Amino acid sequence: MKTQNYRLLLLLMLGAVLIVGQLYVTLPMTSALASNWQVTTGQAAWAGSAFGFAYAAGFLLLGSVSDRHGRRTVLLFSLVATAGASVVVAIAPSFNMLLGARALQGLAAAGFPPAALALVAETLPPGRRPLGISLLSFAFLAAAPAAQLLAAQFAGLGLHVIMLALAAGYVLLAVGLYRLLPTGMAREKKGAIAANPVPMWRQTQLMGAWMAACTVLFAFVSLHAGAQITGFSENQLQTLRLAGLPPLLICLVAARLVSRVGPVPTARAGLVLSAIALMVGLLDGFGWVAAASVLLSAGIALAVPGLIGTVASRATADFRARAMSLYTFFLFVGASIASPVAQALAPHGWSALLWAPIAALLGAAAVVNGWSSRSPSVPQPSEHRIS
């Protein structure tokens, strides 16, 4: 790859960590937020869910924007808008205003991931796209444990300081991308979107990947939120977060696996491994739960590049960003509903809490390849490489 491509990928990875990390940054601060705003911990947990649901909804609202107006424009606008919303979060005078600002923040941040994924799929040389997608996938996934670890370390500074620091980071990233990306990069020609003869909602070869995406972060957040809800100590929670970080590097191996066997088998292997990981977590003892965290991260590190590769290779250029938007919508819907589901299942015991994501993952593995359509205009790809 050219030096410019390496720089672009590095900036997009950093942006992915900072953007997606917003979903998780308030998780270890739930008790502190409850105390500060005089609300229950259940109410305080909505500081994360408000961002998550707006973030997911934003993918549907903003999915076609970068297809129409260019990846560069959307990436820059998303970063600057997220920076502004982060400042609003920092100065929110009430808890209700905080939740509203977090929702605004999630909506602004939603423009970044689809445009970034589409940009990588379109900019890198064909032979390097699996690696680029895997590196970006690693950044999106690493945001979960990294954001929780850092937020736990700096929680004493207060949410307002953390948000102001993140706002500065978004502005600096926007400046970097502004200087790196030429005007009009990856912009679709006028009228290209209307050229696709089959509506996106009828792309049955993609539906399995979209459905499977809902289970990935649902499983991850269920384990970590469940551990917090059921009374694991802070040291144990930090151990689970740290243990889950190194296996995410398997994303790099997944690039070669996607190239050799195809994205669908890679995604299916990751989903099954994730289900097995949670089954390990059902065994007695914290050691087994720590092992589950390691295996779960490894499974997700295989599943996500496989799912992204499936969507990127099967979606045509005229609606690739929108297809990625639906993928990320379902991915973060799963993450957003995980904590409330964990809260509801926790009174029934640790086993009940984990069996829900286990069942979801196994179902996802069964349907990830989608299904054939009777319409002759719908492509039926049999790709083994992302090109």
Rank of each mutant, 00 (worst) to 15 (best):
A219Q: 00
T239N: 11
S375E: 15
G58S: 10
A344H: 12
D318F: 04
Y178K: 11
I91S: 13
R260C: 08
A45H: 04
W37Y: 15
T82M: 10
Q43H: 12
A115G: 05
G287D: 13
A301M: 09
V221F: 07
A255G: 09
L345W: 06
F59Q: 08
R320K: 15
A195L: 13
P265A: 10
L8C: 04
I193F: 12
Q22M: 12
L124N: 03
G184R: 08
T123E: 14
G63K: 01
I308Q: 06
L331V: 10
L99G: 04
A108K: 03
A83Q: 04
A323H: 03
P340M: 13
A168F: 15
V258C: 05
V261D: 04
V253W: 13
L61Q: 03
I229D: 06
S259Y: 05
A44H: 05
L157A: 14
T328E: 10
S86Q: 07
G244Y: 07
N235K: 12
I300F: 06
F140D: 00
I358Q: 00
G48T: 09
A115K: 02
R314M: 05
Q205H: 15
R374E: 14
L124T: 08
P126G: 08
S78H: 10
T316P: 01
G127W: 04
W355E: 06
Q380F: 13
F95K: 05
V311P: 01
Q238D: 12
P265Q: 10
A342I: 08
A152S: 15
G84Y: 07
A50Y: 05
L278I: 04
Q148R: 14
L150I: 15
S233T: 15
A56M: 06
A352Y: 12
A155N: 12
V261N: 01
T204L: 12
P379M: 13
A155E: 14
A83N: 06
A34Q: 09
L217W: 04
G106C: 06
G299A: 05
T41Q: 14
A142N: 02
F77D: 01
P130K: 11
R102H: 11
A359H: 03
A342F: 11
A108G: 07
L345D: 00
A267T: 03
Y55S: 03
L159N: 03
S274H: 01
L8W: 07
G334E: 00
L181W: 03
L124D: 01
A47K: 01
D318T: 14
A115N: 03
S66V: 08
F330Q: 02
R68M: 09
M207K: 10
L252I: 15
A219N: 01
A227F: 11
P130S: 12
A312E: 05
S325P: 04
